[in-house]
Design a protein around this nucleic acid. Sequence first.
RNA 1: GCGUGCGUAGCUCAGUUGGAUAGAGCGUUUGGCUACGAACCAAAAGGUCGGGGGUUCGAAUCCCUCCGCGCGUACCA
Length: 570
Amino acid sequence: MIKDYFLNKIEIAVKKAAEAGKLGQLREYGLNTLVVERPKNVEFGDYAVNVSCLAKNAKMAPPLIAQSVLEFVDKEDNEYSAVAGFINFKAGENLLCNLIEEIIKKKSDYGKPENVEKEKIILEYVSANPTGPFHIGHGRWAAMGSVLANLLKFYGHEVYQEFYINDAGSQIQKLGNSLAVRIRQQLGENIDFPADETERKNFYPGDYLIAVAKEYLKTHTGLPEDSEQLCDFAKNYEEKVQKELLEKFRVHFDNFFSELSLHKSGEVEACVNKLKASGKIYEKDGAVWFKSSEYGDDQDRVIKKADGSNTYLTADIAYHIGKLQRGFDRMIDIWGADHHGYVARVKASIEALGFNPDKLEVLLGQLVNLVVNGEEVRMGKRKNMITLEDLINEVGVDATRFWMTMRNIDTTLDFDIDLAKKNSDENPVFYVQYAHARACSIIRNAVNDKTDSLTGKTIPAAVSAGEYSDLINNFDKSLLYGNIADGKKLVLKLEEYKSLIENSAKTRQVYTICRYVQELAGEFHSFYNSVRVINDSKKLTLARLALVYSVKTVLNNALAILSVSAPERM
RNA sequence: GCGUGCGUAGCUCAGUUGGAUAGAGCGUUUGGCUACGAACCAAAAGGUCGGGGGUUCGAAUCCCUCCGCGCGUACCA
């Protein structure tokens, strides 16, 4: 990376200057004390290093340090300057040309870091109850999770995506009971869910079960003897609906893991026994408690209720231990912020059972507010809530994915439906896609003959198909020299992609990719408006086409990570 | 109450781990198409970084303390 190149040059210079006794009392330079930054004011340079942090040991004023260091820098064809306590750097042609060459040669692999410590990661997200359609919040986890998976894979990790189906427990009974009511309605009975608030909570009164009831009656004549049949039917139906929507939303899971299977296989019970054996268990009020407070949780937790059944936590412990036993180096879970209290207790259980709790990383996502006509619509309070499917149908997969991903996971997301629907400059998705389409269009125009609209004469293509193919397949960077100055800002933005991938993968922050793609599109539009790519000079045209092709490539790569389409025409 | 997240331009948000004059997009105002897509670009206006203390050469960023908002605080899942 250019940034590392620059830092390296400075570090060598600092060492030399110190050895030569030009840095006051400073004799040795410890690595990692200097940090490269992007100057806020572009006039200063492309990158800068602040040497103030050396001042203490050197007992010298920062501006003098900068001056001294500068004398020892091997500058090559780059430009350096010392201003106040800063050493500023402007990249020369060599670095820029190398970068374009790198993109064109690596293509879809551009930005993939080398020598990554590969981890085997299990990424768990969405993990909804199979009791109804996804709500909008699920959409955020689905989008962010799948982008994170794409990113971590591209970065070099092995990623296994899993959906934990909460198909055990009282909510399934509730689902079956609700379906029974809907079926009886279909059979003509005058019956409805209880009007009483607290009794109503034992049912799912949403309209969606009406369709399930109709489906059920296609193959059955009435209610079954065994109510469990209804539970299974409804559960399977909803699971199928959920899976279909995930496909449509470009979210792929390697596995759907059933909670029920943990109970049936005895793994949950085995887990309880292991905890008992560990001595971190006691009985109180007829229930079995786990001493999670000994591991940082704020209180102990029940793992077996007084009625003998297990809690949700118990299955979750078994599930996470199972993940570790399946051989994963790292578990990443995406949970809604409403589950944040769970982090401490699950980590506690992992530690109590002898595993390293740091192997579990929980990304807590703040919730989603829907904004309709400029007003927030609280989810869940309305009987006829807007589902994820409604939203996707309304604004499309691309826009939904982008909007769900574009904000920091720590902030509550306001999803403005009206804005996301607009095909205009208010919508960042279109801005980015337009940049890609524009790049494609320029390339098309460069290699295709045109007809003059006034005279009807054929205008020959600026570049032949052979020349273009040669450009992108046997790239010769010498053609860039002397022709790249106008696109410098754009090249630096393309270079930034490398650190973007690295930082985003390490911090798990995927929204940065959405931001980057907007910035790159912005630089490209600006470049486009300032110079003509196709012009009278063949060499200059080819050089600029190489730049356009690089932009198209990087946009494509980034949008692929977002699983947002990169259209050639719009 | 305790835990947790947030509070930055009219609105929606960045701010690369403490550094140069706090930045984008939208909105507003102004300018730019008989040339590669104007779904675009260029420029201007707009700020007590929630308030108050503290730490130091230097704070939106770290510490303390208030204020406001969301979420959680089950032997539900």
